[in-house]
Simulated scan of single mutants.
Amino acid sequence: MAAVREVEETTAVRLGALLDAGDGATVTLVAGETRLVAHRAVLASRSPVFQAMFQHDTLEASSGEVSITDVEGEVMRELLDYMYTLQTPQLSATAPQMLAAADKYGLSALKAVCEQQVSAQLTIDNAAAAAVLAVRHSCPDLTAAAIAFIKAHNFQVMATQGWADAMRNHVTEVIEVTRLLADPPAEASAPATTGGGSPPGTHHQPHSVHGRAADSAAPAIAAHNTPPFFHIIVSLLRRLPIQDRLDMLTWAAMYGRVEDLRALAAAGAVEEEIRGVVFGQTALHLVASGGHVEAARSLLDARALVHFQDVDYQTPLHYAARNGHTAVVVQLLGASADCNATDGYGDTPLHLAVRAGHAEVAAALLQAGADTGARNEAGSTPLDIATQANNQQLIDMLT
């Protein structure tokens, strides 16, 4: 191991000398007024981001110049020194910026060192910025340290200018920080598939934060429906663009996150959906598909669209019936859902329940007045479908 370490250190020193000399350089990094000459092979060997950049037909690969708009020149210079020498630069005030740059270019070892440095420098004035930085760049240790620091200082951080600046400029991250301050809920289970050939939702996928793809299991928004955090989160949500709130509503519905839905409803997201939905699935469709009983109740309390039809003209009741979620079916019926609404194929919720063999759902629909003689576009009644499937229980119910 000592011999390997010696070779690595010698190589790093030689690469450092190569950087100083500038011999054979093939790429120029431009960060503001700073221009740094570097070797393409070295950058690619250290950073997966640079490797992908130079391997593909990109402007940077063809021009030999990389424009860097979100990293200051001095920070970029130190980052480049690290990539050549693997020696961590002296970090103090630049640790947060270096962490962001290391994360951007996939330098995990440097990112970890920066994370430790920022954790060691936490104060009441900078803890909000540190927490935002940790959430934005997926730093679990720094996140835990910042949250613990804020709690340990009796939430004094929330009275600082740093917190006010974070609320004004980084609302999405502050929502997550506030959620963590209220203690995170247990992990949510994966959502049920919606089926029916419909797209995953009315709204777009949640926006990525600073270019990062949103995780399929997005973090919850609210942990407890108790002051002061619930009201803080609602206030923050109201500051977001409408589409962001609708995106969050979609994901909260998919995962059945009740407190998230309540916070979003309090922030006006359900009303915005009622005004803005034109084509596709609503949050209530997604909740019905997943069988999330409490989530369905929270949306119905917020006067969600019970009768709205998706691209296949299916209502939330169609979704719940098809997937066998009896409790949600009963809830929707109690909210005056039309048990005889027909979709694009002429199927009623009863048709779908019978086709899937959900006897309990069929019983609930029949009790609500579902039409046993309704015919779909193929001319089939629910009884015809039960007969074709030789489902005697359903045949008895329908005759």
Rank of each mutant, 00 (worst) to 15 (best):
A100K: 09
Y105H: 11
T85M: 08
G291P: 00
H39W: 09
D141Y: 15
M158R: 13
A288K: 00
D396M: 04
A17D: 12
A220I: 00
G197K: 00
A112Y: 15
T11K: 10
V209T: 13
A363C: 09
R77I: 12
D141N: 15
R40I: 11
V118Q: 02
L79F: 09
H224C: 09
P48C: 07
G373W: 13
Q90H: 12
G379T: 02
Q116F: 05
N390R: 10
Y255R: 04
A129H: 03
A146K: 12
A190R: 06
L398E: 08
I274W: 05
G346Q: 05
E78K: 14
F54A: 00
G211V: 10
A213M: 08
A127Q: 08
A164K: 06
A353G: 09
D183Y: 10
D301T: 15
A374T: 09
A341S: 14
A368S: 14
T387M: 02
F229M: 12
G324V: 05
G357H: 07
Q392V: 11
I233Y: 04
A335F: 12
T88M: 05
T58F: 05
L305G: 04
A364T: 11
A266P: 04
T282I: 04
I233G: 01
A127T: 14
S235T: 13
L19I: 07
T143H: 10
V328F: 04
D57A: 14
V171Y: 06
L180N: 03
A266Q: 07
A320D: 04
H318L: 01
A356L: 03
L236R: 05
R40P: 07
R375C: 05
E377Y: 05
M254P: 00
G211F: 10
G73I: 06
